[in-house]
Every structure is written in C-alpha cells, then in structure tokens.
Amino acid sequence: MLRGFYTAASGMIANQRMQETLSNNIANSNTPGYKADQGTLRAFPELLIEEMGGTTVPTRNGGLTLPTQNELGSLNTGVYMQEAVPKFSQGDLRETGNTTDLALLNGDLPDDEGFLFFNVQNENGDVRQTRNGNFTVDGEGFLTTNQGYYVHDDAGQPIQTDGMEFNVRDNGTLEIGEAEVQLGLSYTANAPDMVKEGSGLFTPGEDADPLENARGNDGVNFEIQQNVLEGSNVDPSRTMTEMMNTYRTFEMNQRALKAYDQSMQKAVNDIGKLG
C-alpha cells in the first residue's frame, strides 16, 4: 500500500514541475527569440514481482518439498520529470520598423541539430549566445541587448554604432557611416547541448563541443533581417491544451493518493481494533 502511495505522490510532483514549465512557456510566448522548453518524463526502475512457494514431491520416506518461483510481472515505482529541453526551431518573423531590431534566419545548415546564435557579453564579461535580436543603443553608443549586454562583432568586441542610424546587410555586416563591422555569430552542430541561463542567454553544456564561428564554416548559411524580430516558437493553443491535460493527470494522481490515505486510515483505526 505504501508503494502505491509513493507512486501517486511522485506522479503529482512530476506533473507539477511539468505545469511550471508550460506556464513559463506561456509567459514568454511574446518574448522575441524565446525557445520553448519541453519537459521529459521518465519512470523510476521497475520492480519484478515473483511468487515464492513450494511443491511436495512424493518419496519413499514420505515427501520432499522443493522451492518454486513463479514470475508475476513488473511493478512501476513512479515517474519523475528528468529535464526541460529547449525546442530549437525558427520562430515567426514580425516587422517592427526599428533599426536596432535584427532577426537571425537559419539557412541551409550541415547538421540536422545545427543552430545559429548572436554573440553577446553578460554582466560578468563572459561570452554568451542569444536569439533575441531586440537590441538597442546605450548612452555610450554601443549596441546592446535590453538587459544592457554588449553585442559582439566578429572579433569579439562590443559594437560602437554612435547612434541609431546604421544599416545591416543580409550577410550581417553593419554599415556605420563609412565603416563596416560584421556581427559576431556562433554555430553549434548540436543545439540540444545548449543550456539556458536566463534573460534569453544560452551557453554550451559541460560535455558540449566548442561553438564554431558561423562565418568560418563554409556549409553554414544564414540571413540577417533589419527592422524585424524573430518571435518565440511557443504555440499558445497547443501549450494550453498540454496544461489542461497535465492538470487532469495531477488530479487523477491526487484522487489515487486520497484513496490510499483512506485505506491506510481504515487499516489503522478499524483493523487495528480487531487485534
């Protein structure tokens, strides 16, 4: 009985975490460049149930009891949410008319799981990746994200625009007066290895391969569009449906947990009196 109690409880916890993941996706459905998280559920190791018994074999001296072992089947011990993996796919494009808004479009890529990112510098001075091209210009004339992170050029340096008036070509080259600066772009052959850090930033996981310079890979094609933003890849209708299904599953586990609790209460209060 206690095993069923813990199985139902683990189901409730897993569905609660899944609901939190889906709620976060809905909250960021209008965030430019946001990549929806997909929760993965995994079952705990199953237990094999066997019946242990014995059978008597007649002998000259009366009989011999031999042990028997019959397999009854397996028993699941619960489920848990293993991790939330970002879904890397191109979001819809939306024209804004702002010169600092840039959308990065994936072209033909050499790897099925390949993906492209802008390079930015976080508050600690470390290089991170983002798909949120909702940039702006700070008081010193540097191109930054809305959080104030410097956008890097191809040489890994902050981009000085001296104002809002600049042009960006399809190949990611900024025309700032008579000067030309190339946007810093990274490419990963296996996007699921990228880990979210918050504020729309990504970084390679511990066991991930180093990122490549997108311009240094002949097989990587991309396009930069100015005055355009890439939207999130969250499907609100589908996400709401998944939230409803998760909530119903949570309620089913809750009812099962309540039934186990009532059975345990009866065993303690009623059966215990017979003794």
Rank of each mutant, 00 (worst) to 15 (best):
T59Q: 13
D270P: 04
D270Q: 15
T161N: 11
L102P: 05
G200M: 03
P45M: 02
G63A: 14
E165M: 12
R94T: 12
F166C: 03
T161G: 09
G114L: 03
N171L: 12
Q82H: 06
N132Y: 05
Y34G: 03
V57I: 15
K273T: 13
F117M: 07
P45Y: 00
L109H: 00
V151Y: 05
G33T: 09
E230Q: 06
V195Q: 15
F202R: 01
G125E: 09
E242C: 05
V220N: 00
F142C: 01
D261L: 08
G4F: 10
M194E: 05
G205F: 13
S89I: 11
G4R: 09
P110Q: 04
E251L: 13
N25I: 05
D207C: 03
F166M: 02
S23C: 01
M252Y: 13
G275C: 00
L185W: 05
M243G: 03
D261G: 09
Y150A: 11
R3Q: 11
G133R: 03
S29L: 14
E175H: 12
M264Y: 08
F115S: 12
T55I: 12
T68P: 08
T144P: 01
N253K: 02
V220E: 00
D92M: 11
G107S: 09
I49D: 12
V120Y: 04
D138E: 07
P204T: 03
F166V: 06
E251R: 10
F118L: 08
Q82A: 11
T56G: 11
G54R: 15
G39T: 09
M252F: 14
R60C: 03
G73M: 10
T203A: 15
T55H: 12
S89H: 06
A256Q: 08
G156S: 02
N253R: 02
I13P: 00
N167E: 15
F88L: 06
G73C: 09
V168Q: 01
F118K: 07
L105E: 09
I271T: 08
G62I: 06
P236V: 12
N221K: 14
L93D: 00
E71Q: 14
F135M: 04
S199D: 15
N167C: 04
I176P: 01
T40G: 01
D101Y: 04
L116V: 10
G11R: 02
M18L: 15
L274S: 11
D218F: 06
K196P: 02
T100R: 05
G200F: 00
D170N: 13
V220C: 00
K35T: 03
N119A: 10
T40R: 14
D209E: 14
D261Q: 14
V127K: 14
M240S: 07
T188N: 06
K273Y: 05
F117Q: 01
Q157S: 13
V85N: 09
E165C: 05
A259K: 07
Q147T: 13
G91C: 05
M243P: 00
S263D: 13
V268W: 09
Q157D: 14
G4P: 08
M252G: 10
L75P: 06
P192R: 07
G219S: 14
E197Y: 12
I176V: 12
G114S: 06
L257N: 03
A8V: 04
T136N: 11
N24R: 11
P45R: 01
Q262E: 15
I26G: 03
L229A: 00
F118S: 01
E95S: 10
Q38Y: 05
T55S: 15
N233H: 08
